[in-house]
C-alpha cells in the first residue's frame, strides 16, 4: 500500500518534472527559431536590386511603420521619398503616363524631386537618401 503510494508520488513528480522542462524549453526553443520577417533595420533598409526596378517606374516599400516610395526616373536615377501625401496622409504612387508621383485620393501631383506641383498637397514630400551599393539599393533617412 505504502509502497504503491510512494511510487505513485514518484510518477507524478517525474511526470510533472518532464512537463515542467517542456513548458520551459518550448518557449525558449520557439524564441531561438528565427522569425519569418527579417530583423529590423530602420535607419536604412535594403529596398530591392537595381534590376528589379526598370527605368520610369516606382515601388512602394515599408520603411519602419510608414510607407516609402522609390522612383526610378526615365533617365535611370533613383529617388526615394516618404510616400505619405502631405495633404491627407494617403499613400502616393508613381504614375508612369504623367511622369509624376501621384496621390489617388485627390489627384495631388509631385514632380520627381518630390515637389508638390498640382492639386491639394500643401508641401513637398519628405525626401530619403538613396544609396546604391553594388546592385542593391538602400534607402536611409536623410540627415
Amino acid at each position: 500500500m505504502n509502497q504503491s503510494r510512494r511510487s505513485f508520488l514518484k510518477y507524478i513528480l517525474g511526470g510533472s518534472l518532464i512537463a515542467f522542462i517542456g513548458a520551459v524549453l518550448y518557449p525558449v526553443i520557439a524564441f531561438l527559431k528565427p522569425p519569418k520577417s527579417k530583423s529590423v533595420e530602420i535607419s536604412s533598409i535594403k529596398v530591392c536590386k537595381v534590376n528589379d526596378l526598370p527605368n520610369d517606374s516606382g515601388l512602394i516599400f515599408k520603411f519602419g511603420n510608414k510607407p516609402g516610395i522609390l522612383v526610378r526616373t526615365p533617365k535611370g536615377d533613383f529617388r526615394a521619398f516618404d510616400a505619405t501625401c502631405t495633404h491627407l496622409d494617403c499613400t502616393v504612387q508613381y504614375k508612369k503616363d504623367m511622369g509624376v508621383i501621384w496621390c489617388a485620393c485627390h489627384n495631388g501631383k509631385y514632380d520627381l524631386n518630390g515637389r508638390n506641383i498640382s492639386g491639394p498637397p500643401p508641401r513637398p514630400l519628405i525626401p530619403f537618401k538613396v544609396i546604391v551599393q553594388g546592385d542593391e539599393i538602400f534607402v536611409s533617412k536623410q540627415l
Partner: peptide, 9 residues
C-alpha cells in the same frame, strides 16, 4: 512582436 515568445522572454 515578431520573435515567438519574445514578449515573454
Amino acid at each position: 512582436t515578431e520573435v515567438e515568445f519574445g514578449w515573454l522572454i
